[in-house]
Design a protein around this nucleic acid. Structure first.
Lengths: 246, 246
DNA sequence: CTCTTTATTGTGCAAGTGACAGTAACTGAA
DNA sequence: TTCAGTTACTGTCACTTGCACAATAAAGAG
């Protein structure tokens, strides 16, 4: 039904990253201060355009990640979140962003990347509550990314991505507590993570010498899907008024 | 680090649809026969380029859906699946596809759309098993979409999207059995769906006059997340040899 | 040796799950 | 009217899983 002269409208593709890590027991995400003109000076998620026509999207995400964090690129979990392509989201024109979720253990202090004058770890709750303003629709992307991570912690071994190669069960529990923002019962947590076969496997004892009994060390197992899952406890019933009908 | 002359490489954006429905108690997906040149004559998922620079991605998906199915666009569940943008996936150049999952009740026979010479419902197992060849990476997209739907049936009220506005529990059970490809115990199914508050709510009796007792009619409730979830039974232990360590 | 700290293992009860059978409400034919 | 046929729904019981809660084990410090 189109004329022969019609050709599809080209769009520009960006890659944006929600990079999560744990710092001082709390969930943080990496934000940069924009040095280029749209929203210059405002906070934003790390990201950028494809470098050239043949660059793979996942490769671009890895590139942006190492530009911002100077990371070895191993030991990071990187995964696609979704597409954000609303027509008005970028004043430069039709820019479609492929959002990614990155998770890594105790990341070093960030370095300023190409398009960013500064980069810093910001507590997740500051983003969720709207305390910090983000450029474009990055607030939405970050919120979606954090919620996605929270859900995925229940059914996958994603939590081990927050830890180093070897970790204790107590450390793993701190990951869950930090990401979910809730306290967990230590005894039940031990039983659950060990019941999920292939989740974590023991290696050798350690003496973290925090003053107590040394903890058994574990490393991530082969299984990526958790069964049984670790169901996140429901938040303290807010307006849980379920109306009885008629 | 780039010169001022550098500009981001433009890409072409397509929208592809995995449209699922139930026909004769089995899961079907809609495939079209391509009438245009890349992969002309081969089966493919319905989809196409953005119409113009300002068209929203979700709107484009709705447009392609109605072009192919002549659907009222209400009563359809439409949701983004993910991005498929490998550089070699389309011989025409850098074409990035935003895959969508569409689910609708008992759809009418399809009509040939713009770029398709023919459209037909194909059993899902024919796609999964590779019995039908698909253009581009559409086999992968369709597989991901079906698996996504199967998983989401467990934790969300997605199954009601396969039914009409009003449905019986037996019909809902047929949805689960068709999508999962397994038989379910009717008594336990009744208990579970009614235990998940807000999943389905009763309206008034009906006489489906299939010869038996009339079935209570229900409509989809407000809750989209199912709790407790309806866990999909594990397939008959194939090579479930869990090795006991040391 | 005792106290403190952290790690790890048990125990009981309530709720959920799965396997299984019986009852209820209609239609249609004898 | 009765009875067979068909479909919709409800009930039970053994078993597993879930969560709340407490006790024990293994270090270091004095």
């Amino acid at each position: 039904m189109q004329h022969d002269a019609w050709s599809p409208p080209p769009v520009l593709l960006t890659v944006d990253l929600v990079i999560l890590t744990l710092r001082e027991g709390h969930l943080h995400t990496l934000l940069v201060e924009r040095g280029e003109d749209p929203f210059r000076g405002m906070s934003a998620l790390p990201g950028g355009f494809l470098n050239h026509d043949g660059e793979e999207i996942l490769d671009a995400a890895h590139r942006e990640l190492s530009e911002e964090t100077a990371l070895t690129s191993s030991w990071v979990h990187l995964e696609q979140l979704g597409v954000y392509g609303e027509s008005g989201r970028d004043p430069r024109g039709r820019v479609v962003s492929v959002a990614h979720l990155a998770i890594a253990p105790g990341l070093p202090n960030p370095v300023a990347g190409t398009d960013a004058t500064d980069a810093a770890w910001v507590p997740a709750h500051a983003v969720l509550s709207g305390k910090v303003e983000l450029a474009f629709d990055h607030r939405r992307i970050a919120t979606d990314g954090i919620e996605y991570a929270r859900t995925k912690l229940e059914f996958s071994s994603l939590a081990t991505a927050f830890c180093g190669a070897e970790f204790t069960i107590a450390e793993l529990q701190q990951v869950y507590e930090a990401v979910w923002g809730t306290a967990l019962d230590t005894r039940n947590f031990y039983r659950k993570v060990q019941a999920a076969k292939g989740f974590i496997i023991p290696v050798g004892a350690d003496r973290r010498s925090t003053g107590g009994r040394p903890a058994q060390l574990y490393r991530a197992g082969p299984k990526t899907v958790l069964f049984p899952p670790l169901i996140r406890p429901a938040p303290p019933a807010t307006e849980e008024k379920t109306r009885e009908e008629e």
